[in-house]
Nucleic acid binder design. Structure first.
Lengths: 195, 195
DNA sequence: GCGCCCATGTAACTAGTTACATGATTCA
DNA sequence: TGAATCATGTAACTAGTTACATGGGCGC
């Protein structure tokens, strides 16, 4: 199965909302979808160029008095069709690589206190993230019209469900680990038998 | 910040349980941590070699009558120290790239029926995954001794919390989307104002 | 004879990150 | 004067995936 360049579609999607420059787009992304999608300049700029080359976007150079030159890109009809085509394809599921869980899985190699510390730190991160989500929610709600489909709230809600679940898991895990607190000697089994 | 080669530690961690070959390790991984960590042969074999070169593992060639040759690797004391050193470092948080959410975020470019289909499919996937998790849970519980720290159950529980949360989010989202069912004309706003 | 499982590996590729280079303006 | 922000870009790198190559044994 041919791998698709997803940055391409992330960028195209952003342009479907309104024309913007690469720099603006990075900020837009960091304020909206950052909790499930990241992009960096090293990819945004080359992708914008290639979209232009392929006729999926057009570029206007915007020189304002005493400001750096901005390259503002707009999506074309062809670009919109290409975006829609991709949207209809089934979404590929990500391959998770969750380092915290990998470390926990091998946790018996070190003392339980170390693992407790990691889970506590994860819980703090969840709490912090949920707070910023609350602000994002307020922001979106103050901007939405009520007649549109609230896709921004929908994707945000995923994050809220996710971090609430991780927080609950942290509590459960801390409870479990505390029963073994103080045990010094690392064991070497894990509940999985011969594979 | 220097990037660490995480496959290296995944492999080292697996060897910390018992000596095994690359082929066995792949199966072990696919039966235990696959829901949060994947590895493929293209990385396992080269890493095993480099671990041996660096003295973190040793290799024995195992030739059984009428069977293919197996290269069985064992972790060394140096390897165990290197694993422990890594375990104590803070876990790096993954950069999520969840394509389903990216497509939903741009959902207003196509009809709502398409997005409903995607969310339904996600829900089915959650249900299916939770069922296989149940089997895994039974398997682990039948193998664990009760005196060890249940790290296998702990990492599994993360997955269970996660997929239950996503399932709930699917229900909530379907509810939301159904209110807009039948609306044909794609809109072009998303609840995010000027950034 | 065919397909599947065992078993080890390499090569080619795509994706993604980070560091660097440049230079102007604004604000403390 | 120095830091932060605006703004665009490239080069070098690491990570990760997929396809391919090889070959024996086993069951249908």
């Amino acid at each position: 199965m041919a791998k698709v360049n997803r940055t391409r579609y992330a960028v195209l999607g952003m342009l479907s909302f309104r024309p913007m420059s690469g720099y603006e787009m990075k900020k837009y992304i960091d304020n909206s979808i950052i909790h499930f999608w990241q992009e960096n300049f090293g990819r945004i700029y080359p992708v914008l160029r290639s979209l232009e080359r392929e006729g999926l976007a057009t570029k206007q150079v915007d020189q304002e008095e005493g400001r750096p030159v901005r390259h503002v890109y707009s999506i074309t009809e062809k670009g919109r069709r290409e975006l829609a085509r991709w949207l209809l394809l089934p979404a590929e599921r990500p391959n998770w690589r969750i380092e915290l869980l990998l470390k926990l899985f091998f946790g018996s190699q070190v003392s339980v206190a170390n693992m407790i510390r990691k889970v506590r730190s994860e819980k703090a991160f969840c709490r912090h993230t949920l707070e910023t989500f609350q602000q994002l929610e307020d922001h979106i709600k103050s901007h939405e019209s009520g007649t549109e489909i609230p896709y921004g709230l929908i994707t945000l809600s995923y994050g809220q469900h996710y971090y609430r679940a991780v927080e609950a898991w942290c509590d459960e895990t801390l409870e479990r680990l505390r029963r073994f607190e103080g045990e010094g000697e690392p064991a070497r089994s894990n509940g999985f038998g011969k594979q």
